[in-house]
Write a protein that binds this DNA or RNA. Structure first.
Lengths: 225, 225
DNA sequence: CATCACAGTTAATAGAGACTAACCTAAATC
DNA sequence: GATTTAGGTTAGTCTCTATTAACTGTGATG
């Protein structure tokens, strides 16, 4: 472990025996064991998000990862086939969540203009709520296995197309490549927050960041070609 | 070496003897040797930019790096004290170039509004011309030594302050934290191009990307608070 | 011309860290 | 209650790669 954090996330005392985890919040499995396992899995994913975000995939050892989830080293193999698979699970779930969220937002909206406004709100909210995974996604994508890369890319593509379709309903004259680039650039704008808004609150309050980002994003999206 | 490129950058045949490099384009040193050395150093930095951008710092070995510059393995130590130092030299020079360029742009401009427009032009141009280093900078920053991190951060801070000062001349009522976040978000927007504009030209022509990005950036920067 | 300096080379060295083996204990299961 | 299952543990193994050592050949330098 380099030097940085690894506490703060494992809500439970790392030294506590596994049974202490059994009564955890979620985990809907039947047996006590399967619930404990699910909880541990979530702890590992959460630890991975934070550790990977801070140190980068390559500088987090399985030892670090296990320790942050209250377990040590090779125990990770009881939950994932390998280190790369942890990253895969993490990024696949993020991409899926973004896509699902985006789709339901669009489905709920009436006209394209309000759909776009809601999409922006949704994405800003997502980025401000999950800065860690956002960071990991655009820093450690290339550490995914080839298969996972393809799957994540497919999900991301769908998400982008969602935006492009909505944008096409507004800038009907503009060609798709242009709209796709607008979407990407807007993601870049919104996703910049993990860099500027520090976890330990140095820079700027999230509360005031939200409307500012929304306004900037909408302005950029509706700027003249 | 994973699989990806390592040719295409070393303009000279990697198998060619060192003397072939002596007649290179730049390198103003006195003796033949010092010119060759400078050329090799540049080749290493250029190879590093490309390799790090594609594969990430950690998955490029010194062997790869040397090979891409027509030299092999430990020869890198004749030019840099270590792998980390190569990254340091690369990112320090980028940060310095951005700051220098930004300062001269602002110095040349009259009113704040035109200064801002020129800054945007400059930054867009920089990002489109050097997608590799942009990518490396925001992906592998944390692989720098502590000292280099501090230096790069200082340069970046100055660059941001340059933008904030110009922005303050326009949105005079807005507070600085807000303006700083605007600058960061705009960098995120503009720096998104390394992701969307692929080197091998899949996505969108650079030519049409430039004005689009400029318009989006300006719209975002001047959006209501 | 003699000698030095120095960019390169190939062959160790060394440390890190992903993954595997062998065991252990307690919840499931019958 | 006996037996299996499975999450954990600790102690290897094995590979990869940054760095160092020991040499070499050739362009400066006097």
């Amino acid at each position: 472990m380099p030097i940085t954090e690894q506490d703060r996330l494992a809500g439970d005392d790392p030294a506590a025996p596994p049974e202490a985890l059994a009564g955890g919040a979620h985990a809907t499995g039947a047996t006590q064991r399967s619930r404990a396992k699910e909880t541990r899995r979530q702890a590992l994913l959460s630890a991975a998000a934070s550790l990977f975000a801070v140190n980068g995939f390559n500088r987090v050892s399985l030892e670090d990862l296990g320790a942050a989830a209250g377990v040590s080293g090779p125990a990770v193999y009881r939950h994932f086939p390998g280190k790369q698979a942890v990253l895969g699970a993490l990024l696949l779930s993020v991409s899926q969540d973004l896509l699902d969220g985006g789709q339901s937002v669009v489905a709920a909206a009436g006209d394209p203009a309000s759909a776009l406004a809601r999409l922006v709100q949704f994405h800003v909210d997502f980025a401000l709520s999950n800065p860690d995974v956002i960071r990991v996604q655009d820093r450690d994508f290339s550490n995914l296995s080839a298969d996972d890369q393809a799957q994540v890319r497919a999900l991301q593509r769908s998400y982008v197309e969602l935006w492009v379709d909505v944008l096409a309903g507004i800038h009907s004259e503009t060609d798709t490549a242009d709209l796709r680039m607008r979407a990407h650039a807007t993601f870049g704008l919104i996703n910049s927050t993990p860099h500027s808004v520090r976890n330990h609150g140095r820079r700027m309050a999230i509360k005031s960041a939200r409307p500012l980002l929304e306004n900037m994003a909408l302005a950029a999206l509706t700027a003249p070609a």
